[in-house]
């Protein structure tokens, strides 16, 4: 056991001639929120795919809470809470039925499961839709159900792929609060996002992935102080992505 919640050890992934992820080495300790940013096609989804077992690394290894995804997949996944970029919900089930199923998969049952379901229903404001079919829910509500099922079993590691998509500002703020509570209890969060401000404000550390390589990694202060990066996350991002700064590293140009 290395003590890290998430570890990429020289993990590479190739699709034929295309190298989607090159020798990624990254360790995230328990209790940290780590934001992974990068332009489209940088390898973020591939990194998430390796952590969830949807993809197998071409070389290197990936570990969650010390469990190798290749040899101890079930143990690794049992401490994982995952929200994909496009959440899947069984269309004809209700949110409560969905949560009951996910709870059973994580070996929860009885009163414990029922109280957790009520907790998440209340937390993500799903009370008024709890018995409606998933297929009738709006995009934002579906996202809240997907978040509720990721939080249901109090995982040690949260993997959130673009979690804010479809959420209103109230739900976004609530999600950040829940994530901070969880990390205070020792859980770890890896989130991918295109919202640089979110990554900067929420992430204790951030990594910039470009062309399958992790070109920068550190806390906002570290990134600002580093000779090679020197600047706010948005400045670092545009610089590493090869896009000239519009003005003082702001994300959007001044009109």
């Amino acid at each position: 056991m290395s003590g890290f919640a998430i570890e990429f050890v020289s993990a590479s992934k190739s699709y034929g001639q295309t190298e989607a992820l090159r020798q990624l080495s990254l360790s995230i300790p328990p209790g940290e929120i780590f934001a992974l940013v990068g332009p489209n096609g940088a390898g973020k989804t591939t990194a998430i795919g390796l952590l969830t077992g949807l993809l197998a690394p071409t070389s290197g290894s990936v570990r969650i809470a010390g469990h190798d995804l290749a040899s101890e997949a079930e143990k690794a996944k049992s401490v994982l809470g995952f929200v994909p970029d496009r959440p899947f919900l069984w269309p004809r089930w209700t949110p409560v039925e969905t949560l009951r199923y996910v709870g059973a998969v994580f070996r929860l049952s009885g009163q414990d499961l029922s109280s957790r379901i009520e907790r998440e229903i209340s937390s993500f404001d799903l009370e008024h839709v709890r018995n409606r079919r998933n297929e009738t829910l709006s995009h934002g509500t579906r996202q809240r159900v997907a978040l509720a099922q990721a939080f249901l079993h109090d995982p040690l590691v949260y993997l959130l792929d673009e979690p804010m998509v479809g959420l209103d500002p109230i739900a976004q703020r609530h999600l950040v609060r829940r994530l901070r509570e969880k990390t205070a209890e020792g859980a770890t969060v890896l989130l991918t996002t295109h919202q640089l401000l979110l990554a900067e404000e929420v992430g204790e550390r951030a990594g910039v992935l470009v062309g399958g390589r992790l070109l920068a990694c550190g806390s906002p202060d570290q990134l600002a102080a580093d000779e090679s990066t020197r600047g706010r996350l948005s400045e670092v991002f545009f610089s590493l992505a090869g896009v000239p700064d519009e003005r003082d590293g702001r994300a959007f140009p001044d009109f």
């Binding site: 969830t52 079930e74 996944k77 996910v102």
Partner: peptide, 14 residues
Amino acid sequence: SDEIPFLIPLPVRP
């Protein structure tokens, strides 16, 4: 099926 990418990250045996 969209169910497979949903089920694989869960602790369910292949």
